[in-house]
Simulated scan of single mutants.
Amino acid sequence: MRRPIAVLAALAALLPALVAAPAQAADRPAPSRAAVAEQGVDFEFIDITREKFVFRLTDPDKIEHARRIISGEETEVVHVMGRITKVPADYNRKWSYHLKSDSVSFFDYGIEVCDATIPYVEDHLDEVGGAFLPGLFWCPWTSKLTREVG
């Protein structure tokens, strides 16, 4: 009989610490907008091909805009656009290119010359910046923000 009582006594002694741990975490201040922006926040979008593409935002206002899109609060300016960098990024390893973080923004309507699917850009990456996606500018019309990565 002593053994179960000892176990219960030990658990009872730990209970206040277990209950206090989440409260202590909640007492910690949330990171500032500047701190979040310094590290960057990664988001994922899909296009009509259902492929996934991850990009990083560092501008606090754009981070908040992306979060409003995901929550459904923003329903107008919801598509992703930006300038392509022809090297992979550690957060978007599947593809041989990524979007330059400080160039990313959102749009409602785009011009045809900057529209392409994720895999089409990959397949024609050597042509990007010429007649195909001039200025390295990409605005996939069917881009749909799906989630914050992290």
Rank of each mutant, 00 (worst) to 15 (best):
R3D: 09
R3C: 06
R3H: 02
P4M: 13
I5A: 14
I5Y: 04
I5D: 10
A6H: 14
A6S: 09
A6V: 13
A6Q: 12
A6D: 11
V7G: 09
L8K: 07
L8G: 11
L8H: 10
A9N: 11
A9C: 12
A10F: 05
A10Q: 11
L11M: 08
A12V: 04
A13Q: 02
L14P: 02
L15T: 05
A17I: 13
L18N: 11
V19L: 15
A20H: 08
A20K: 07
A20D: 14
A23Q: 14
D27P: 09
D27W: 11
R28K: 11
R28W: 13
A30I: 02
S32V: 05
S32D: 08
R33E: 15
R33F: 02
A34D: 13
A34H: 01
A35N: 12
A35Y: 11
A35D: 07
V36S: 13
A37F: 06
A37I: 00
Q39C: 06
V41G: 10
V41L: 09
V41A: 13
F43A: 11
F43R: 09
D47V: 00
I48A: 15
I48R: 07
T49S: 15
R50S: 14
E51G: 05
E51L: 02
K52Y: 08
F53M: 04
V54I: 03
F55V: 01
R56W: 03
D59C: 02
D61M: 14
K62F: 03
I63W: 10
E64K: 08
E64F: 02
H65Y: 00
A66R: 00
R67L: 12
R67H: 00
R67D: 14
R68E: 00
I69W: 01
I70Y: 05
S71G: 06
G72W: 07
G72Q: 14
E73T: 10
E74P: 12
T75K: 07
T75Q: 15
E76C: 09
V77E: 15
H79C: 05
V80P: 04
M81K: 12
G82C: 03
R83G: 02
K86E: 01
K86Y: 05
P88A: 06
Y91Q: 04
H98V: 01
L99M: 00
S101F: 15
S103W: 01
S105I: 05
S105D: 11
F106Y: 00
F107L: 00
D108M: 09
D108C: 10
Y109M: 13
E112N: 14
E112F: 01
D115Y: 04
T117S: 10
T117F: 00
I118L: 01
I118C: 12
P119G: 08
P119R: 07
Y120F: 02
Y120I: 09
E122I: 00
D123N: 14
L125D: 06
E127L: 03
E127S: 08
G129C: 08
G130N: 10
G130T: 05
A131N: 03
A131W: 07
P134H: 08
G135E: 11
L136K: 09
L136E: 14
L136C: 12
F137A: 06
C139W: 03
W141N: 04
W141G: 07
W141C: 13
S143N: 13
S143D: 08
T146G: 01
R147M: 09
V149T: 06
V149G: 06
